[in-house]
Amino acid sequence: MNRLEVNLPGLVMKNPVMPASGCFGFGQEYAKFYDLNRLGAICVKAVTVERRSGNPTPRVAETPGGMLNAIGLQNPGLEHVLQHELPWLEKYESPIIVNVAGNLPEDYMEVAREISKVKNVNAIELNISCPNVKEGGIAFGTNAQTAADLTEKVKSVSKVPVYVKLSPNVTDIVEIAKAVESAGADGLSMINTLLGMRIDLNTGKPILANRTGGLSGAGIKPVAIRMIYEVSQKVQIPIIGMGGIFEVDDILEFMMAGASAVAVGTANFIDPFACPNLIDGLEERLDELGFDSLTSIVGRSSALCNLNHVR
C-alpha cells in the first residue's frame, strides 16, 4: 500500500500534493520540467464563461515572505478550455480539478455544468474567494448565506464533487465553512489569498495597477494553519490546505492542523520543481518521524489538544 495515497471525494491521489489554482496555468508550462503524472492532482487556473483579459500591469509585487498578485482571473474562457486546455490534459492520469469563477450565480452554474461533463475532470473548485475582481469572486465568499446559496446552485448542476475555496478575508471562517457544508459542498479548499497593498515610495502610488492584491507565500501560512485547525473541527468534509507551503514540514503541519491534502502555489515560481521535490521528500520525512501513513496524521493536532482538555 502506498503510504502517501489520499482518497477524497472524486479524487484518488497517489500523494497529497497538487499545484494551487492560478499558479500552474493549465499544466503546459510545468510539463516541460517534469511528468505531471507525479502530482497527486492537478488544479488548473480559474475558468469563467467568457474570455477575460484580467487587470492592467503591474500585477505582482514582492513582500518579505510573500507576494501580492492581482491577475484578475485572466483566462481563455469556457469554450476554449473545453476545446484546448482540457483535451491537452487527457494524456495525464492524475485527477484534475477545475477552478470555477464568474460574476453571477448563473455564470458559475454554466461553467460547472459544462466542465463537469468532461471525462477527465474529477472535481470542481468553486472560487468564491478571488480578491482581485470587482464582481463575483470574493463577493460570494464573505457572507455565509450567499456562499451557501451559490454552493447549492452549483451542486445542483455539477456531475462531479464540488470543493468550495474559502477566503481568509472574513471574521468568522467557521460560519462560512459550516454553511457551505450544509449546502452540499463535498470538500473545502483553504485558503485563498489575503487582501493587501504595497506603495512605491518613488511615486507615492500603489505598486499594483489594481491598487490591492492577494497576498500569498510563506507569510500567510500561520493564518492558513489557524483557519484549517478551527474549521476542521467543525465540519465533516475534507479540506485541501494551502497558503505558504514551501517545505515538506509545511505539508505535515497543514495535515496535522486538519487538511487531508495540500496545494502548492507561490513556491512553483521560485522552484519549478517545487511539487515533485516536496513529494520526494515526504516519504523520507514520514520515516524520520515514525508515522506509518499520511492519513494517520490528519487532524492529529486538534485530537491531541482535545485529549489534554479532557485530562
Binding site: 499558479c23 496555468g25 474570455r51 483579459s53 500591469t57 500585477r59 505582482v60 498578485n69 476554449h80
Partner: peptide, 27 residues
C-alpha cells in the same frame, strides 16, 4: 514587466496584442 514564474504559468507579465492572434484568438 514584473514577473512571477518567468515561464508563462502565472499571467503576471502580460501585455495586449495590437490585433488578436489569428491562430489562437488570443488578445
Amino acid at each position: 514587466e514584473r514577473m512571477g514564474c518567468g515561464v508563462g504559468a502565472c499571467l503576471a507579465c502580460v501585455c495586449d496584442l495590437a490585433e488578436a492572434n489569428v491562430e489562437t484568438g488570443k488578445v
